[in-house]
Amino acid sequence: MVCAPSTQSIPSISSIQSTPAELPISAATQVILVRGANGEPEFAPKFDAQLEAWKKVAATAGAQTTVIHEGSPAAAADPKDTKADEKTAHGTLKKALTALPPEGPGEIWIVMMGHGTWDGKEARFNLEGPDVSATELAEWLKPVRRPLVVINTASCSAPFLNALAGADRIVITAVRSGSEKNYTRFGEYLAASLTDPAADYDQDKQWSLLEWFLSAAARTAEFYKTEGRIATEHALIDDNGDGKGTPAEWFQGLRAVKKTRDAMPLDGAAAQRLWLVPDDGARRLTPDQLAERGRLETEIAALRARKSSLKEDDYYQLLETLMRRLAAVYEPGS
């Protein structure tokens, strides 16, 4: 079904300061949870459950968390009020995003739970009151140079991937095109995967963003298979910045195994090295150390991908150098 926008309302916005007071906001992980319009009453419990799951995992991560539109009462905005938009979820989302420090090592996670629409030209995420378009979200986030994750679990969300993809960004959508307009179950299964041991594919006792994506996509596909239905949603992930996205079926385990026609690096490598809830070792690192670890792990992954084109001695010499630098991140001076 395509959900029409609901009546306008004053959004509920709350901030949970879970990070140490002395930590600069640009160095802290920030999570912005956007709970969209119900569309129909039957969807309210589903979106509420997803929101609660994300709030819990964000709190566990010690992230600075902002919740936008948390089931607030309806209240029509005055069309004559020049500041009416500021009282809607649309306006408060804009304010929250444009207030983000544009630079720094701290990650920004934006998770959108709700319905979407697409008119053939523009995709929108349904909010109480005015909806937010992919174009608007891209414009608000344009100055951001920090690591950015955007997860849109709504129907018709694929154009958000095209609009938001870029360097140091990971974008996940519940569907592969704007025309996939039925209610999506991907968001439900993604929320269920956040602390599910079965979603820890490599059994390292932490969940990477890639593992969450693959687990949710697999459970979504299993739902349609079990119900004997034609799948009406196909999730995508983009972390190489090309704005095309890769479906879960392209992965074998945690590695994308199909090749792109334009020889671009495959998606998934960056998402596999990103955790909202870090392990104990990562918790002891500073934001700068975490950023350095990420850069080195990216170099190591790229080197391993080139192994067949290098002489054996050269490959292992380069690998040893990178591994020593990685060890030094955990033990400076080693």
Rank of each mutant, 00 (worst) to 15 (best):
residue 1 M to P: 01
residue 70 E to L: 02
residue 321 T to A: 12
residue 294 G to N: 08
residue 246 T to G: 03
residue 75 A to Y: 06
residue 110 I to L: 15
residue 113 M to D: 06
residue 196 D to S: 15
residue 213 F to P: 01
residue 76 A to Q: 10
residue 171 V to R: 06
residue 158 A to P: 05
residue 98 T to V: 15
residue 296 L to W: 06
residue 227 E to D: 12
residue 300 I to V: 10
residue 315 Y to V: 12
residue 299 E to S: 09
residue 135 T to H: 08
residue 16 I to W: 04
residue 169 R to L: 07
residue 157 S to V: 11
residue 211 E to I: 10
residue 224 Y to A: 13
residue 331 E to Q: 14
residue 95 K to T: 10
residue 168 D to M: 09
residue 315 Y to Q: 07
residue 51 L to Q: 09
residue 57 V to A: 00
residue 104 G to A: 10
residue 80 K to L: 12
residue 329 V to R: 00
residue 66 T to D: 01
residue 243 G to V: 14
residue 246 T to F: 03
residue 180 E to C: 07
residue 264 M to R: 11
residue 92 T to H: 14
residue 133 S to Q: 04
residue 204 D to G: 13
residue 9 S to N: 09
residue 141 L to I: 11
residue 134 A to N: 15
residue 15 S to A: 04
residue 251 F to K: 02
residue 204 D to L: 09
residue 229 R to E: 15
residue 284 R to L: 15
residue 230 I to M: 03
residue 83 K to P: 00
residue 215 S to Y: 05
residue 248 A to D: 05
residue 274 L to S: 08
residue 194 L to F: 02
residue 289 Q to V: 13
residue 5 P to W: 02
residue 155 S to W: 02
residue 32 I to Y: 00
residue 250 W to P: 00
residue 218 A to Q: 13
residue 272 Q to P: 00
residue 326 L to P: 10
residue 284 R to Y: 00
residue 102 P to F: 03
